[in-house]
């Protein structure tokens, strides 16, 4: 993985800043398409859920949650299904493009959580949650970030597999069987959705905390003044 880096010199002050090309084009493109796709899939999924907001038998029906219509997309079940069945293809296509790119470019080494990263978990968790000292940053992603991104990729794959099990319980009956049956597949699909929502929440908090340069890097690919480059 050859990381490109530049030294940017301000014409007026003459001050030099390091810049690193952190996010390749395919990664950024997939990130933003996926942002839209996830928004649509979650919104329309919740509208679909409103049609039968339960996981038990239909009779007697116990509504688990009365999810508000204003926080759902599609207006009615048929409309929500149109959104869901359209964007699932966009989601799958970008997912395959993204994973394929990560694997073949070797870029995955930057974010894949491996046993090597285990020792870094606790110091980082202490820093984030228990006011511990900040461990020195040596690479673009710290152990917890790698853990989060690796987990969400697995969740992404599982969201597709559970979705296929619900959509095609006959053609993919083995998938539903692997998930403990059609009922559980629907429940897994729902739980995985909330896990992804939890990731998105944490992700957005970190984006705000890490500031503008970090955010811009997902648009342009270039991160100015990354903290892991020693000055």
């Amino acid at each position: 993985m050859a990381t490109q880096a530049l030294t940017v010199v301000n014409n007026k002050s003459g001050q030099a800043t390091e810049a690193v090309y952190e996010h390749p084009y395919i990664v950024r493109l997939c990130h933003w398409i996926n942002t839209v796709a996830l928004f649509v899939l979650i919104g329309s999924g919740l509208q679909i859920f409103r049609a039968f907001p339960s996981f038990g038998p239909k009779i007697p029906q116990h509504n688990l949650i009365n999810w508000p219509k204003s926080l759902a997309l599609g207006g009615w079940l048929g409309g929500a299904l149109q959104w869901h069945l359209t964007f699932m293809w966009i989601y799958i296509a970008t997912g395959l493009l993204y994973l394929g790119y990560q694997i073949f470019s070797g870029h995955y080494k930057q974010i894949l959580f491996t046993p090597r990263d285990v020792p870094g978990v606790w110091p980082m968790a202490r820093y984030y949650f228990f006011f511990g000292a900040k461990p020195p940053a040596k690479e673009p992603y710290n152990a917890l970030q790698k853990h989060a991104y690796t987990t969400v990729m697995v969740l992404g794959v599982l969201s597709v597999l559970t979705g296929l099990a619900i959509w095609k319980p006959v053609q993919f009956s083995w998938l539903a069987w692997m998930m403990g049956g059609f009922h559980l597949a629907r429940l897994w699909h729902f739980i995985i959705m909330w896990a992804i929502v939890a990731f998105i929440f944490g992700h957005l908090v970190m984006v705000v905390l890490h500031g503008w340069n970090n955010f811009v890097s997902m648009l342009t690919g270039w991160k100015k003044d990354p903290e892991y480059i020693s000055k």
Partner: peptide, 19 residues
Amino acid sequence: NETIDQRKFKSITRRELLK
């Protein structure tokens, strides 16, 4: 690293954004 000036860097990042 290669050293470039601010303006050139801006044009690189703008191109990347447009992609």
